[in-house]
């Protein structure tokens, strides 16, 4: 199994993800420069965080329209797992692989801090190693993480069990104070209709080793790896 990690100019969490996959979990993973178009050798894809194209135009907008994203779309259509983290989530919404949009935080400031998330569904390739309702600690680092979708899209996401994570307080309650960016319904991460594409603003790669204060994020990558192994 090999997992591909897409690098755009301005990606900056690519090496962290590579470290977690290769050194912490021990699976094959490879960085893929965005000019490559053949992704057929990969069983899964990570679109990492950073500032692709300097966030010009809109965060993720230009990266979303590069040819490599057509290959990612193809892979997703085949049912292979794709995770977009932070800027990667923005790229996936901009490319239409996920619903909604990420707009400027309600308080328009870059926020870099630990957040609590509640696992809303375990019926995805990325959350199978959690229990529904688990409260986990995974940090955020963004200024454009305010999840927005129109009402019908939002109710579609809820009805189809596509909300993966919500921002909560330490006891697992959805509160306004626990919402770091004004996201609708405290949404921190969603999956596609077929559940094999996940986008999330928090950074699981920054919570994958004890020394970092939390290993909760590791389970997301472990779930993905287990899913790939079971295919």
């Amino acid at each position: 199994m090999t997992i591909g990690i897409i690098q755009f100019g301005g990606s900056n969490c690519d090496l962290d993800v590579l470290h977690v996959l290769k050194d912490v979990i021990g699976v094959d993973a490879e960085l893929v420069w965005y000019k490559e178009q053949d992704l057929t050798r990969f069983e899964g894809i990570v679109v990492p965080g950073g500032f692709s194209y300097g966030d010009y135009l809109r965060a993720g907008a230009i990266a979303a329209r590069t040819p490599i994203m057509s290959s990612v779309r193809q892979l997703a259509q085949e049912g292979k797992p794709v995770i977009g983290i932070c800027n990667g989530f923005q790229v996936l919404t901009e490319s239409g692989l996920l619903d909604g949009a990420l707009t400027t935080n309600k308080y328009p400031k870059f926020r870099c801090e630990p957040t609590y998330l509640r696992v809303e569904t375990t019926d995805t390739p990325f959350t199978s190693k959690f229990s529904k309702g688990d409260v986990v600690s995974i940090p955020i680092a963004h200024k454009e993480g305010n999840f927005y979708a129109d009402e019908s899209t939002l109710s579609g996401l809820e009805d189809n069990d596509q909300v993966a994570f919500r921002y909560v307080d330490s006891s697992g309650k959805v509160t306004e104070e626990a919402n770091p960016n004004g996201s609708q319904e405290n949404i921190a991460g969603i999956v596609s209709a077929k559940k094999n594409v996940l986008g999330m603003m928090p950074h699981p790669e920054r919570a994958s080793e004890e020394i970092l204060g939390s290993k909760d994020g590791l389970r997301i990558f472990e779930s993905m790896v287990e899913f790939i192994s079971s295919q």
Binding site: R65, E94, D150
Partner: peptide
Amino acid sequence: QKLIANPII
């Protein structure tokens, strides 16, 4: 439609 605006927002 293709790039400059995001029709969702």
